[in-house]
Design a protein around this nucleic acid. Structure first.
Length: 602
RNA sequence: GGGGGCGUAGUUCAGUUGGUUUAGAACGCCGGCCUGUCACGCCGGAGGUCGCGAGUUCGAGCCUCGUCGUCCCCGCCA
């Protein structure tokens, strides 16, 4: 193999006409015309057309005609400009071809289980069962589209590393075999052979280590790091995923914003997209009230409006009862869609199927026609109430109002928020080319879970400034805000972080808020609390989901398109067949015995 | 853990209310022809445990039950 002379397809252009070139790659497509044979050779950079003419070289032609899809070949030939009528403007290299003088088949290929060639990708036509793709992932990744995804991911991470290096950040690796943390997701556990009956946990994030690095005086840390969470999968969730983990000392929230925003801008610039700055800040409460979500999609308006006060005396009984029992009525204005939303859709589809799926009992609809409302329930609304509704929701002719009412105001936000997204998607009101980032801030410190207080972010987050409530003052605790922030782009949470507690007394109080006993704190975070006693600097940080960020920037539908070897929905790897059983001897080493799985009685 | 969809050729799918002998299509694959294709074209061919098991029926790809696999929604994901 003369690897020294070998070139990539993309490096050969019309400027190389007449040059001798050496290419290595795979047989992409074959077009046999009898006395003329065309073969596309593919490498990671692209494809080039090879031409084989028996009148030029019979032996090479014969060898080429034995080639099949995905055979690995090495060729030497001459670059020729194609005649004008033979040029193909649809292909990057369509104005040249290689007259081949020597062809070597380095390896044959079985017929692949799906077409690898780029032609299968055209018009997004590639449609193969994902489990089959994962089983033959090496072939799937050989597809030009997937090759590009991995290459672009690497380029984007290079931008990240260069940027953070320039900002003085130090890349530090943290342990994969570490200690189980009590809160959050389920841990992946690794049994210890040396320490009988003891387990390591794989990190859900390097949270405590990066804080310890701040106490180590490192000042600015980052890491592109795998994190593990043993929870059920979702389309955009993998059991192991990659985070861009960042922490800095002697900083505040504004530092994080000023660090991350230019980075996001630079990453998007790599694919030619301009991101508007500065990113707007939306307090959590506002996000919930106006968008019904803590990750608002700002690519479209359709804000939620509270119309309860407009309808206090309405004669419509359902609304009346809900308002009387402390409930809320909120609405959205689906602009200009009156003609595209039929009564049967609104009444049968939306009210009876879609909204119940979101957890709502129903939805009221009204169309604005000739300055008046039209609806199946409009007779219950006085002229004044109709006018007030139109004004509250900024109604114009052709608009459609959708109202959600419930005795539980939080539920109203949640359902209407989902409906807002549903309607925007269904009616095509989202500008798919837009990039709409924002910071969601001022999250509550705690939420109630099964009657217990639990951290919304994590227990190392600093609460808002000021005296902390006592552990028994639940009313104040639930109102307490935290110095945390989420980065949201196009309705997807791409990361989050906070300013941390560096004062051991305040940290201890937070553990007490969470009802952790002295001994529990000692057992779970003893080393960390101890570290806080030795001069911990004020610090904070953020973690960004790399898989999500990359797939969003590249416009891919799933994070699995930008992960080389992902797991399927059941956290199984069809390629390696992981997870799998282990030998008795291995279990013996680990002092483990498998318990039989109980068979459900029928 | 709960609810739903899907499982037919290598791939993507069709298959009527259960009805006949040989379960179809496109792409892919194999063979032949073809000197400018690039979604090449033309002719021919091979290829099927209808996921698996039981049941209903004179008869099941189709109906019922179970099971396995997979995808989606909810729970879960500090």
């Amino acid at each position: 193999m003369d690897w020294k002379t070998r070139q990539y397809c993309e490096s050969i252009t019309i400027k190389n006409s007449g040059d001798a070139v050496h290419l290595c790659g795979w047989v992409d497509t074959i077009r046999d015309h009898g006395q003329l044979l065309f073969i596309h050779i593919r490498d990671r950079s692209g494809v080039l057309q090879l031409v084989f003419d028996p009148t030029v070289n019979q032996d090479v032609y014969d060898a080429a005609s034995r080639l099949r899809s995905e055979d690995v070949i090495s060729i030497v030939g001459t670059v020729l400009e194609r005649s004008d009528e033979a040029k193909n403007p649809n292909i990057v290299s369509g104005d040249i071809e290689i007259q081949v003088n020597q062809v070597d088949c380095l390896n044959k290929s079985e017929t692949p289980p799906f077409v690898v060639s780029e032609k299968a990708d055209q018009d997004g036509a590639f449609n193969v069962d994902e489990d089959l793709r994962l089983k033959y992932r090496y072939l799937d990744l050989r597809r030009p589209q997937m090759n590009i995804n991995l290459i672009q991911r690497a380029k984007l991470l290079q931008i990240v590393r260069r940027y953070l290096d320039k900002q003085g950040f130090i890349d530090v690796e943290t342990p994969m075999l570490t200690k189980s943390t009590p809160e959050g997701a389920r841990d992946y556990l690794v049994p210890s052979r040396v320490h009988e009956h003891q387990f390591y946990a794989l990190p859900q994030s390097p949270q405590l280590f990066k804080q310890l690095l701040m106490m180590s005086g490192l000042d600015r840390y980052y890491q592109v790091v795998k994190c593990f969470r043993d929870e059920d999968l979702r389309p955009n969730r993998q059991p192991e995923f990659t985070q861009l983990d960042i922490e800095a000392a002697f900083i505040d929230e504004s530092y994080i914003y000023s660090l991350i925003e230019p980075l996001i801008v630079e990453l998007y610039a790599h694919v030619g997209v301009t991101v508007p700055t500065p990113f707007p800040h939306i307090p959590y409460e506002t996000a919930m009230n106006e968008y019904g979500s803590d990750r608002p999609d700002l690519r479209f308006e359709m804000k939620m409006v509270d119309v309860s006060s407009v309808l206090t005396n309405v004669q419509y009984r359902i609304f009346n009862q809900i308002l009387a029992s402390g409930g809320k009525i909120k609405g959205i204005n689906v602009k200009g869609q009156a003609e595209k939303l039929s009564k049967s859709f609104l009444q049968d589809e939306l009210a009876k199927k879609v909204v119940p799926q979101f957890g709502g009992k129903g939805v009221s609809w009204m169309k604005v026609i000739d300055g008046k409302l039209e609806s199946n329930i409009v007779q219950f609304f006085s002229d004044e109430e109709q006018a007030a509704l139109i004004s509250a929701l900024n109604g114009e002719n052709g608009d459609v109002f959708l109202l959600i009412a419930d005795t539980n105001p939080d539920l109203v936000n949640e359902i209407l928020g989902k409906l807002r997204l549903f309607m925007a998607q269904r009616q095509g009101l989202i500008d798919e080319t837009a990039v709409a980032p924002c910071w969601v801030t001022e999250f509550p410190m705690y939420e109630l879970k099964d009657g217990r207080l639990s951290s919304v972010h994590h227990p190392f987050t600093q609460p808002e400034e000021g005296e902390l409530p006592g552990p028994d003052d639940r009313e104040q605790l639930i109102k307490l805000l935290s110095r945390s922030y989420d980065l949201v782009i196009n309705g997807e949470e791409l990361g989050g972080g906070s300013i941390r507690n560096h004062d051991p007394k305040r940290q201890e109080m937070i553990f007490r808020h969470l009802d952790l006993s002295e001994s529990e704190i000692e057992a779970k975070f003893g080393f960390f609390v101890n570290a806080l006693q030795y001069g911990a600097p004020p610090h904070g940080g953020i973690a960004l989901g790399v898989d999500r960020l990359v797939s969003m920037i590249l416009g891919r539908e799933s994070i699995r398109e930008v992960i080389a070897f992902p797991k399927n929905r059941t956290a199984f790897c069809p390629l390696t067949q992981a997870p799998g059983p282990v030998s008795e001897a291995q279990l013996e080493d680990l002092h483990l015995r498998l318990k039989p799985i109980p068979v459900p009685s029928t």
